[in-house]
Write a protein that binds this DNA or RNA. Structure first.
Lengths: 179, 179
DNA sequence: TGTGCTGTACCTATCACTAGATAGTGAATG
DNA sequence: CATTCACTATCTAGTGATAGGTACAGCACA
């Protein structure tokens, strides 16, 4: 009912990617997980690259919806950046899997071009958001440093099994940003 | 001549992993790259997990050899940490591929257990080295923060095609460490 | 009647992995 | 000295499993 078939497929695909990378996704496994056949998955996403692109795209849409406008009036830079760090902590939360784009960003080289382009667009947008969000305040960290420290913290937090590492990164980032 | 067959295999495997993750490695491709047959690769590394473990293990040995003792007399903490950041920059240098353990760290969940154990041991050792290296000095960054910022910077540097991002991380780390 | 979605059945390619034969080497043995 | 033995490293040939992807039929609903 609730979720469309397309969304069901994307849900399973996203979870698989976050657990084991792009190659961990298989049409058969996705189909089995939601109770259809692999040919039906191909109907919605003819090629695997279509599926990958869609997963990344939806992930981005959701993230930026959660972040809100980076230049929303009334929100100070520190508060905006806090929304960003919070989003990363939320991404880690439920299963202890790494954020989608941390995983895919780590191995863009080996992905189908449509997917790596989509990842690239995601980071274009994320860095742009962060840059705008910092405007009007003072930061000792560049947008790139903020984002990369979140990526690294997430990866190490997952590997070590220590969510605290991501919280530490958040603290360091917020300490570097003043309104 | 120089390199043993085992090393030749590990060279190709490491390059493949760094480009496309663990699943990008195939016995056939490795064999073809060095002019033998896949069955011969299996002779040296019966299972893929053996190969993965060996790649990570050799990578670690080389890195720690380059880092030297973390408590070598006469070397100040700042200088020691600089060796660490330099090692990461060297790892990025030749091909623009990400560091092996950044890639594998990003997706430990989907790896054969022997490989993920080896990755875990690598980070145990790396964090231990960094902790010891910081002794006697003052740092506003924990060992975990130093390592995770290098991981994140390397991943974003590769994705963006901007090696400078890793240099920026180095600067920030060195600024946080005082003798 | 057409459109949207799912099914069955199948394709070819690739995967990790194995059995067993072959050739070369070096040391021990007659 | 010649032979045998054990070992190393490679090959050919093949296994069964799984991958992405396709052709086409059926079915429900408008």
């Amino acid at each position: 009912m609730s979720a469309s078939r397309t969304d069901e497929i994307l849900d399973v695909a996203e979870a698989s990617i976050r657990k084991g990378g792009f190659d961990a996704v298989s049409f058969r496994d996705i189909a089995a997980a939601i109770g259809i056949k692999s040919a039906s998955v191909h109907y919605h996403f003819p090629h695997k690259s279509d599926l990958g692109r869609a997963v990344v795209s939806r992930y981005g849409e959701r993230l930026f919806a959660a972040l809100g406008a980076p230049d929303a009036p009334g929100a100070a830079p520190r508060k905006r950046i806090k929304r960003l760090t919070q989003a990363y902590r939320d991404a880690l939360a439920p299963e202890g899997d790494a954020c989608l784009c941390a995983v895919l960003g780590a191995m863009t080289q080996g992905l189908p071009e449509p997917v790596s382009k989509e990842i690239s667009a995601f980071y274009d947008r994320l860095l742009g958001w962060t840059k705008t969000a910092l405007k009007g305040g003072k930061s000792t960290m560049t947008p790139e440093m903020i984002v990369s420290s979140l990526i690294g913290a997430m990866i190490l937090a997952v590997e070590r099994g220590q969510p605290k590492l991501l919280a530490d990164a958040e603290k360091a980032i917020l300490a570097a940003v003043a309104d």
